[in-house]
Each structure stands twice: as C-alpha cells, then as structure tokens.
Design a protein around this nucleic acid. Structure first.
Lengths: 279, 279
DNA sequence: AAAAACCCTGACCTTACCTTAGAGTTTTGG
DNA sequence: CCAAAACTCTAAGGTAAGGTCAGGGTTTTT
C-alpha cells in the first residue's frame, strides 16, 4: 500500500482548511484520522481521506450543518442523501425569497432616509401628484384624536399582529397612517377610526387591502402628531383659498420615523394630505 | 406625564420579543429601560421606548448586527444610516447571488444522486447523445496513467486552487474528468495530460474554458479508475466492430463520487466516452 | 396572608469554528 | 548529535443572538 501519511498540517494545507477545523471534525466524528499515535496523540491522515473531506465540504456548501453531515455519512444511505438535498433545496429557495424581501425593504429604507434628508420645512404646503398606493387597513372603535400617541402605538401593534396571525407576509415597510373621512375633514371634526400600513404592490389580495388611487394632493408637512389639528386646519384653509375641490378622504401619512436619538419621543415626519379634483 | 410604566414582561409581550432579548438589549446598551429600581433591579419601560425597539427590530430585519445597530443609535447620524444601508444592500445582493449558486449546486447534486441510483451495470456499453458541456481545462506535464489516483487528486486540487486564485467563481459542481487525444486512444497509448472540471454554462469566458460540443458518444460505464485501460480497450473494440467513426478526443468523466461510506477508497462512477460521426 | 405570577442574576448551552497558553514532538541545520 | 525551529497536542475561552435553567427575591392576586 502506498500509505503516504500526512500530519494534520499537511492535510490542512492540502485541502485548504484550518488545522482547527480538522480537529473539530475529528471530535464530532465526521472525519477521524486513519491513524492516531496513542502516545503522542498526533493525527495522521491518508490521502484517500481527502475524498471524504471533499464530500464534507461539498455538503457544507449545500448549507448542511455538521450534525446533518454526520448523520448522512453514518447512514451512508443514498435515499437519505437525496431527500436531504431536496429539503435543502426548498430551504434555500425560502432563504432567497426572504433575502429578496429584505432587499426591497432596504431599498425603501434608503428612499425613506433620502426623503427625510430632503424634507421640506415644517408647515410647508404643496400640491403634488402622488401615485397609487396599496394599504392594509384596520377599523377600530376608538377615535385616535381622542387619545394620545400611545393608543396609536398600541393599535398599530394590534394591526401588525393581525397581519402575522393571518399568515400574511410580514410587512417590513413600517410606514403607516390614518384615514379621516372627507366629510369630517371638511368640518375639522378630527375623527378617525382607520389605521393602515403601506404594503407592497404585489401583496396578496385580501378584504382589508385597499388601493388608494393616484391623484393630485394638497399636502402639508409636519414633524409631530401634536400639531396635527392645527395643520389640518391650515391645509383646509389653503384649499378653500384656492378653490380646490377635495374629492376624497384625508390621510395622515407617517413618512419617516427615526428613533436614532436617545430622546424619548419619536422623531417623525408626517404628511397630511387630501386628494383634489381639477375638472 | 402619562408615565405608564411597563414591567419587562409586558414590554416583551407588547413588542413580541422575549424577555431574554430585552435583557440582552439592556446589557449591550441599545435599549436601556427608562427606569431601573435600584433595590430590586426590576426594569421598567415607558411606552415611548417602543419606538426605539421598533427601530432596532427594523434594523435587524435589514440584517444588521446588534453592534452595528448600537453604533448607529449612538451616533444618531442620518448620513451614516444611509451609508450603512447602502452597504447592506450590496451585501444582501451578494448573499442572494451566493444562494442562487448554491441552489444550482443542489439541483445538480440531486441529478447526480439520481444518476447514481439508476446507474447501469459496470461494463455496459451505450451509444448516446450527450449535449454540449463547458469545462475548465488544465494542462499538466504528468501523464495520469503513469501514476496512481493520489496524483490525480493532487492535480485536481491544484486545479481548484488555480480557479480560486484567478478570482473565478468557485466551482461547487465537483464533477471532473480527463482528456486523452483521439490518436492516443486509437493506439490505446493511455496518455493524458489534461484534467478538467465541469463549469456552469454561464461561467465567464477564459482562456482555459473550453466548450465540448454535443455529439453522439460511444460510452462505457465503470466504477473505479483501476480498470480504465481494460474498459477503454473494450470501448475501442466495440467501435471497431460496429464500424463507428471516432471523431474526437476520448474523455474519462467522473459522473459521481460518493464518499458516504467509511471505506478508504472513493466510490466512483465513471463514464468513458468518445464522440462518433455518422455521415 | 398565602399562593401565583413575575422578575432578578449568573451560569451554561447552541454553531462552526478561532485564538491562546503551556507543554510535548518532530524535523532541520550546523 | 544537539539545539533551534517548526510542528502538534489538549484545554480553555471567545464569537452572535439569544435560550434555558436554577435559586432566590418581588408583586399581584386570591
């Protein structure tokens, strides 16, 4: 026999793994050196063992844990290898889908930060085109304007839980808002029972998912919920002064929320908006 | 002030995280409870802190580590958030690409296992169509047939290192083979200086990358390098008996290699092949 | 006032290794 | 042949983001 034995260092170099790794594989029993000196405990590997190490590395590439690898190697059952591979494939597919979702979320986060950086001054009024959006809406018995922010938080939390419980995709995009009916806005009654989360355009259809159509909106920007009533008043006045026709519900949209600071309050950036009709 | 304090359990439930997690966040300093009883060490959270926790969870969704999150929260710098996000995006993109590679590898592994299960008997001769393949070839001065398998292993290892050093994509698909020139095969000279690895169809162009054209091949199957010479002889005889015209180089292809068993040798499955021309 | 529910700290567990320390072994050079 | 260099061993402790458990204190409920 050509028993060309290698010491652990050679074996490691030969296979481009670390010595530590080989020792670990020995310990967990997936690659025992073909001979171990009982006196010195030195490990000696045969060149033939490279094959097994290759297989281990290959299986690791496939995303298996050492435990899974051990099981397969012990059983030496081809059936099992195949079924393991098939379930791995499914798993990887899911991971890819997850990462793609994350990717989208990051992209939106970047947009969001950019928007924050370029945010107009508080109180600024604009008339702008906003393209269509999809929202997941929840109705509540409480009127948000009768309570403080903590109630809003709680309900928003309910909403998210709601989504999760229904097995709907997690919404990473945490932008949200509330809706007030047009009639109430016209009277400045400040009454809202609807809260929503923006969802992706490809979000599955659902009774709570609604499309907000694109339109020209009259908007006013502000940076805290506190002054909402006052700003809503200004927005309404502005529309009246310009003889704009309000053609839909009022939306209070949370554009960005950054809680990077140690302050106790959220640093928010809001856009109050009503759709307009120009005949 | 509405200092509606929550104990850790409430806070955890409210935000759907575990108590342990909140304690961890306290320890690493990304979310300190707004009040801690100095006697009992009980942690009390304010509802306003939910905002910060939201942000933390959001950043985690984006794939940031707690360390990264802490940095951002400490600096509170929007610029930095943005650049972090941008680099995250790149990272996620790479991860997705990696996973896709892995996915392909798994698919091929499944095919490979299936092929192994359905492998014909050793010695079986077929004439079959094999569609085009892409290979990364390396030339060596040594003739594989003058040495034993360990030399082949070593050179294969060199080849892989070669690939990595050149910054080419890692080849997970570990199927490989050797090439013998047609003339040598016709004389059964058993001389091969070229070893190759199969690569993906979309592998970047490179001077060492060669396309093996599709063709009808005369093939013989076997399960060890040992008998290669003998099997090659049989293949040649077969072609002669049938008056087949050999129109290209001889390939010894390693179809599958399973080292699931504790034996010292590789359990291989090979296909020797020569392309034929039917006018 | 007792029981139930809750909270604390500290320690150890997970994966797939890496690092370091201190001691022993083999190889190399002179 | 002997010293130095290079190598190897074990054992312990670290990583990230928590989970789990034990033993003991605190709050809330009954």
């Amino acid at each position: 026999m050509d028993d060309k034995m290698m010491k652990i260092g050679e074996m490691a170099q030969f296979n481009r793994v670390s010595i530590t790794t080989l020792r670990l594989y020995d310990k967990v029993g997936i690659l025992k050196p073909c001979y171990t000196d009982t006196k010195t405990n030195y490990r000696y590997y045969s060149i033939h063992q490279k094959a097994r190490l290759d297989m281990i590395q290959y299986m690791k590439e496939l995303g298996m844990s050492l435990g899974e690898i051990r099981e397969i190697l012990e059983k030496g059952d081809i059936q099992m290898i195949e079924s393991t591979l098939i379930s791995k494939k499914k798993q990887v597919k899911e991971e890819i889908a997850q990462l793609k979702l994350r990717m989208g979320a990051i992209t939106r986060a970047i947009d969001s930060v950019e928007r924050f950086r370029k945010a107009p001054d508080c109180g600024m009024i604009t008339v702008e085109y906003i393209s269509h959006r999809k929202v997941y809406v929840m109705h509540t018995d409480t009127n948000f304007y009768e309570h403080d922010i903590s109630v809003y938080e709680e309900i928003l939390e309910d909403l998210k839980e709601n989504l999760i419980n229904q097995g709907l995709p997690q919404v990473y995009y945490c932008n949200a808002g509330t809706i007030m009916r047009k009639e109430d806005f016209l009277d400045l009654k400040m009454e809202s029972h609807e809260i929503f989360l923006f969802v992706d355009d490809d979000f599955p259809a659902h009774k709570s998912v609604r499309r907000i159509d694109s339109a020209m909106y009259a908007c006013i920007y502000l940076d805290s919920f506190e002054g909402e009533r006052e700003y809503a008043r200004r927005l309404l006045n502005y529309c009246r002064e310009h003889w704009y026709v309000i053609c839909g519900d009022y939306i209070c949209e949370v554009l960005t929320e950054f809680n990077v600071f140690d302050s106790e309050k959220r640093s928010m950036f809001l856009r109050l908006q009503v759709p307009l009709k120009f005949r």
